[in-house]
């Protein structure tokens, strides 16, 4: 029963949602909407477990004075400040939550994202070493694409580099991407079938 009931529920839910894709009728749209609401309800309940996990981990870190434990105060402070700004009516009415989101969280996230530029440079330095014939082809392709994307490359080659770059991006690149996409699509469908039929049960902790 412990095995069969979850597999049965999974099959029913997956089957109904698959059928829903082909049926535009309102009754099936409602099935989709209701299942999304259920998903959100489950998510709301699980967030309490998530917060408990986060608080427990950082309290333990502070208590045992683990490496860089001081930062845990900032994490916990940030967590409680956001909760207070969203739940305390006086703070919420003054727009404290939005202020914290727009002036602290968003700039910090943007800073992390901007690091990507430097990481791309360091990864490209390693990836584009001409260690073998294939790596050399990759390097040459990268050089043409980079030169084709800047005005200097256009002026140097009288439009040849942009044309080569466009060809590389639109022909071999798209062909490879589509091949991977077809594989991904079939892989997903196959995996979904395995889950529906109860062959794949890793989400049930191997039951």
């Amino acid at each position: 029963m412990k095995k069969q009931l979850p597999v049965f529920l999974t099959f029913i839910c997956a089957f109904l949602l698959t059928v829903q894709y082909f049926v535009p009728h309102r009754s099936f749209e409602q099935i989709y909407e209701v299942s999304n609401i259920w998903l959100q309800i489950i998510g709301v309940f699980s967030i309490f477990l998530g917060i408990t996990s986060l608080v427990t981990m950082h309290v333990r870190k502070i208590r045992h004075r683990q490496r860089q434990w001081q930062y845990s105060f900032i994490t916990l402070g940030g967590l409680f400040a956001m909760v207070a700004a969203g739940l305390i009516p006086a703070l919420e009415q003054r727009g404290s939550y939005e202020w914290l989101y727009d002036h602290i969280l968003n700039p910090i996230s943007a800073t992390m994202f901007s690091l990507l530029a430097f990481f791309i440079a360091s990864a490209a330095f390693r990836a584009f070493r001409a260690r073998s014939a294939i790596a050399t082809i990759l390097l040459l392709a990268a050089v043409f694409v980079m030169l084709g994307r800047v005005p200097l490359g256009d002026r140097m080659s009288h439009g040849l580099f942009p044309a080569i770059a466009d060809w590389l991006l639109n022909v071999p690149n798209v062909a490879a991407k589509r091949a991977i996409l077809i594989g991904v699509g079939l892989g997903e469908a196959s995996m979904a079938l395995r889950v529906m039929l109860g062959i794949e049960r890793s989400y049930m902790a191997g039951e």
Binding site: G43, F48, G50, S53, S202, M204, A205, G206
Partner: peptide, 21 residues
């Protein structure tokens, strides 16, 4: 480390079950 609490719960069960096995 997990981004979603639901993923964390399943991951905990998967790892716990593997340790048990």
């Amino acid at each position: 480390p997990n981004v979603y609490a639901t993923v964390m719960i399943i991951a905990q069960e998967v790892v716990k079950s593997a340790y048990l096995n």
